[in-house]
Amino acid sequence: MADEKMQKEGMMEEKEIFVLTDVSLITCIVQRGLADIVVNAATDAGAQGGTVYFARGYGIRERLGTLGVAIEAEKEVIMIVVSDEQADRVFERIYTTARLSTPGMGIMFVSRLEKAATYIPPEVIANMRRNRRKALGENG
């Protein structure tokens, strides 16, 4: 996630806060057992990872398949945070790999995040500081 724009938010109890801006959250809801395929597709397309949890779906399932048994009610929800520039690529890769165009397979949506924060390797922070100093030097 090194290509997201980073901002130094300020100090709180003498601790620097680094946040990532221009990031999006991809949420994908699929049938139970398919989360690995989704997370694999996302990481192949450049995402750093994903978080998976179980949920129960309810909707038009009863109208699909024989007595509604064809569509698994148990779902897996996958959350993947990506940079805005990666979002389209990761979204498309998941869509094709998990075959979301198949009816009843699942849904996926992207929401824009105001900001995010996580561990940022020290070398990335050092690089960012160097670039900032350079930019300030160029601007006088």
Partner: peptide, 14 residues
């Protein structure tokens, strides 16, 4: 300690 390694992810949306 979100800024430490393997301590998770924090996000905020409108």
């Amino acid at each position: 300690n979100i800024g430490d390694d393997h301590n998770g992810l924090l996000m905020m949306e409108k």
